[in-house]
């Protein structure tokens, strides 16, 4: 609702904006009052399954929200507060080396995958090519310091899971970046709306101070990412309520099937890369180590929530290709670890 309010108010004098703010606060209080009424209404309760669907979806939102906000803030820093071209200046010219460097950016950024999307969008707006931004997007959630620490806490160096995760993630990001750099028309990889945003002439902005520009980016990114996050969370919640968990767990002991089961689990579960090692730890006794590595490589890059968020930036066609390539490569890593370890 607040997003709509912003869109309507941009061209109007500032008095009406205070009215919108007032309306928002009153509306919020109204909803709060409704909540109090529902709370006290004896016997009001949703059916269990609906209630759990809501609880799970809201849980995904609450868990992802801080990372999304952090991602938007960092995106603002990159676009507005860093001097123009600072990042580009120090990167090697050779595209392959350049992407390799970019895939290591994530080491300095404690942001999980959903927060990386606004940041990657910021990089594209700031002049990076699409494959470069994609390399960053795929590698950053896996090589980020928090992910490495939590994975180490959960697994130590046992069975090569941590090593497979970090090296596998970097390899996949660079391979995917290279694949998409072969595409002849890079602009067609992006959604028309985002592509138009990138081409917006820069002098448009000169009338605004940095503070105003920052707010502008915040509003724009929030109104694009938040609906996607909410829908992704709802789909993730729905799948969790619908698909019995034990179907996946019974597949866990076969080298091939357990890898496939983990791909599916990673796809539907949609938890952030910073914490997914803790999530998968209880399964470590059931599943083979390679399958765990598959989960830890695939999950941060692709899941239902991520696809919904990525769709704000890339076309459906690109996302299908991305999913297939990343799934095959992660499965390969898992199979190698399963048969070697």
């Amino acid at each position: 609702m607040a997003e709509e309010a912003h869109r309507h108010t941009v061209a109007r004098p500032s008095r009406s904006r205070w009215i919108w703010l007032g309306a928002g606060v009153v509306g919020l209080c109204g909803l709060g009052a409704l909540r109090v009424v529902l709370d006290s209404a004896a016997g009001f309760s949703l059916p269990n399954q609906v209630q759990d669907l809501l609880t799970l979806s809201i849980s995904v939102v609450v868990e992802s929200l801080p990372f999304v906000i952090l991602g938007i803030l960092l995106s603002i820093v990159v676009q507005v507060w860093l001097p123009d071209g600072l990042l580009q200046r120090y990167l090697p010219r050779n595209p392959m080396l350049r992407r390799a460097c970019i895939s290591l950016f994530g080491v300095f950024l404690p942001v999980c995958e959903c927060g990386n999307v606004p940041l990657a969008r910021g990089l594209i707006v700031g002049g990076f090519t699409v494959p470069e931004a994609m390399t960053f997007l795929l590698a950053a959630p896996i090589v980020n310091p928090i992910t490495i620490i939590t994975t180490h806490q959960a697994f130590g160096f046992d069975d090569g899971i941590l090593v497979a995760r970090v090296i596998g993630g970097l390899a996949i990001a660079n391979i995917v970046g290279w694949l998409f750099s072969l595409h002849p028309r890079q602009n067609t990889l992006l959604t028309p709306r985002f592509e138009a945003e990138c081409r917006r002439p820069d002098d448009h902005d000169h009338a605004l101070t940095r503070r105003e520009k920052s707010l502008d980016i915040f509003v724009r990114e929030a109104s694009v990412i938040m609906p996607a996050l909410l829908i992704g969370a709802l789909i993730a919640g729905a799948i969790q309520v619908a698909v019995p968990r034990d179907v996946l767990v019974t597949l866990g002991t076969n080298p091939l099937w357990s890898v496939l089961a983990m791909l599916v689990l990673a796809f539907v579960i949609a938890v952030c890369s910073n914490v997914d090692a803790f999530f998968i730890l209880p399964f470590a006794s059931t599943f083979m180590p390679g399958s765990i590595a598959t989960f830890l490589v695939f999950g941060p890059i692709i899941d239902v929530k991520m696809l919904a968020i990525l769709r704000t930036t890339f076309t459906t066609r690109v996302l299908v290709q991305l999913t297939v390539v990343v799934a095959l490569l992660s499965a390969l890593i898992g199979l190698v670890v399963n048969f070697v370890a």
């Binding site: 309010a5 605004l208 929030a222």
Partner: peptide, 15 residues
Amino acid sequence: ILVIASVTGRFRHED
């Protein structure tokens, strides 16, 4: 804070 600032502040005209 940012939400409140962006409702009250001035920013670019939406295309």
